[in-house]
């Protein structure tokens, strides 16, 4: 009797309460599932449209069952002029800029992660500040500046700007990954007389391979999707990356070839989705990268 009177004070122990909580949890899980599926359906509609339309011979602007199955839309756009040249331009532009970003970021992260200096903290705070500046706002002056120094409408100019705009975030991310490599591993090499540079190349970078992959892929994905930078800095149609050419092409020919538009969108988006899946897996579920993104 005394025991039963003490029970309410330790409710965690009652089997009835536990089962009631479990019941409630199941109900709540079902409710959560339903709510999420409704939200997912809303998010999925535009995605379903693009996939269905790309294989629909008579695509329009609505989500509908395709009137048939065709690769005609893909055939129509897989030409040098519409797809291959812009994609190659994108690859040169984003590949070049990514390489530059990653090399500079790895070099810069090393002293920031390894050596103690009074400059580290102010430098890192400045970098953090720069990661979130709205780059869009400086594009007009960048354009004016590039005209003055003859970098306008050049691949190298655009690559340099792309690299600089992605660099703050790349440095930040790279430094954090590098902090995860224990310093003890390098100390042996140092006593053997290896320079800091050798130890970075031979020891640190190989140990943080996945981290480098994340920085590389993330920078690349960000640039691949960027519209405004090449839109402002490149003028010649032959040099345009896919992000700009898709807009020009379908804008100029009137928005009527919806099937082709959808097919092009699929071709242009697939690489970055695959790359994202790659790093998402590496990081264990993708959610880990969460806040790291959106420079």
């Amino acid at each position: 009797m005394a025991l039963s009177r003490t029970l309410p004070r330790t409710p965690r122990l009652t089997p009835r309460l536990t089962s009631r909580l479990a019941d409630r949890r199941t109900t709540r899980r079902l409710a959560a599932d339903v709510g999420l599926l409704v939200a997912a359906a809303a998010f999925a509609l535009p995605l379903i449209w693009v996939v269905l339309s790309s294989v629909d011979p008579h695509a329009n602007l609505r989500v509908k069952t395709p009137d048939g199955f065709t690769f005609g839309n893909f055939d129509a756009i897989l030409t040098p002029e519409i797809t291959f040249t812009p994609l190659l331009n994108s690859l040169i532009l984003c590949g070049g800029a990514t390489l530059l970003t990653v090399v500079c970021a790895a070099l810069a992260a090393y002293p920031l992660s390894r050596f103690k200096s009074r400059l580290n903290r102010p430098f890192l705070l400045t970098i953090l500040f720069t990661t979130s500046l709205p780059i869009t706002a400086i594009m007009v002056p960048v354009y004016a500046l590039f005209v003055q120094v003859n970098l306008i409408d050049t691949m190298q100019g655009t690559i340099l700007f792309f690299a600089a705009s992605q660099l703050p975030f790349a440095i930040w991310l790279m430094k954090n990954f590098m902090d995860g490599v224990p310093k003890e591993l390098e100390e042996a090499a140092w006593t053997d007389g290896a320079s800091a540079f050798q130890s970075l190349i031979r020891i640190v970078l190989p140990l943080m391979g996945p981290g480098v992959a994340v920085v590389t892929i993330f920078s690349f994905v960000m640039m691949w999707g960027n519209f405004f930078v090449p839109f402002m800095l490149l003028l010649t149609p032959d040099q345009m990356p896919a992000s700009v050419s898709i807009n020009e092409f379908f804008g100029n020919r009137g928005m009527v070839a919806y099937g082709q538009l959808a097919a092009f969108s699929v071709v242009y988006s697939t690489p970055v989705i695959l790359l994202y899946v790659l790093i998402a897996r590496r990081l264990g579920g993708g959610f880990a990268l969460g806040g790291a993104v959106k420079g």
Binding site: S243, N247, L261, S265, S269
Partner: peptide
């Protein structure tokens, strides 16, 4: 993850 322009087209549609 979709490129900005593609997202624009999808929502335009």
């Amino acid at each position: 993850v979709l490129p900005e322009v593609v997202a624009g087209f999808l929502l335009y549609a």
